[in-house]
């Protein structure tokens, strides 16, 4: 009881602080500081129509590299923690038959889902979306394959190869930016092109393709590891 009272007291204090923030917030009328700099110069310097992509990939590209690394570490730790010991055998529950509707529909829909994912990350510099969203869409395609066929085993080698190649390519483009342009992950190593077309914004589409492949592989790896051996015996 006393614990509940303590929690309520803490939350009341926090709510009071939030109330202070709320009454001091009176809606922005103009852009300030960094936001106005990016709005004025982002399109000219980077050449991307979508300013969020310009910030994520170029201005704050190093943060994105760190983010991808965190995701990779999470996937690696999940694989490490869930690894079964050699002689440990989980009793298998019988696999329930998936419905015919799901299996036939997945054969039609999965390629389309992959295509939508690729579209989202190739057009990341023009439309809403980008590498992370496209990667998540690709991972949901893998998820649909897993739901249609629960005993399917995602090949660890293929996923690891895609992931490491795209990671190395991402860092290599960053280093090429130091050599050919202004700094690490500078996108002006390729010509900026005409504003608003598919082949524009320098290296941003290229970087987003590698980020999309890497994130898709990592999320598929997480889903595959968590779903693995829930129904069948490890061999």
């Amino acid at each position: 009881m006393i614990k509940k009272l303590l929690i309520v007291g803490l939350l009341t204090g926090l709510a009071f602080m939030f109330y202070g923030l709320l009454i001091s917030y009176n809606g922005n009328e103009t852009l300030t500081g960094l936001g106005s700099y990016y709005a004025q110069n982002g399109a000219r310097e980077v050449g991307a129509a979508n300013l969020v992509s310009a910030i994520v990939v170029t201005y704050r590209g190093l943060d994105t590299l760190g983010e991808v690394t965190i995701l990779f570490l999470a996937a690696a730790i999940i694989g490490f923690v869930l690894k079964l010991k050699k002689d440990e055998v989980v009793e298998a529950r019988p696999v329930r038959e998936t419905s015919e509707l799901l299996t036939s529909a997945s054969q039609v829909i999965v390629p389309v889902i992959f295509l939508v994912g690729v579209y989202i990350f190739i057009n990341g510099h023009l439309t809403p979306g980008g590498g992370f969203q496209g990667g998540a869409v690709i991972a949901s395609g893998v998820l649909l394959m897993l739901l249609a066929n629960p005993t399917m085993h995602i090949s660890h080698n293929i996923v690891a190869t895609i992931e490491s190649i795209s990671g190395i390519a991402f860092v290599a483009i960053g280093i090429l930016g130091i050599v050919l342009a202004g700094g690490f992950l500078d996108n002006r190593l390729l010509p900026l092109g005409e504003f608003g077309t598919l082949l524009s914004a320098g290296a941003i589409p290229l970087i987003y393709i590698f980020i999309g492949l890497k994130v898709g592989a990592e999320l598929s790896n997480i889903i595959g590891t968590i779903s693995y051996n829930q129904n069948e015996k490890p061999n």
Binding site: V52, Q133, A136, S140, L219
Partner: peptide
């Protein structure tokens, strides 16, 4: 952008 991310990652996966 954020809406697309939240719908696919936060709500789906």
């Amino acid at each position: 952008d954020v809406a697309l991310t939240e719908a696919s990652i936060g709500s789906g996966l």
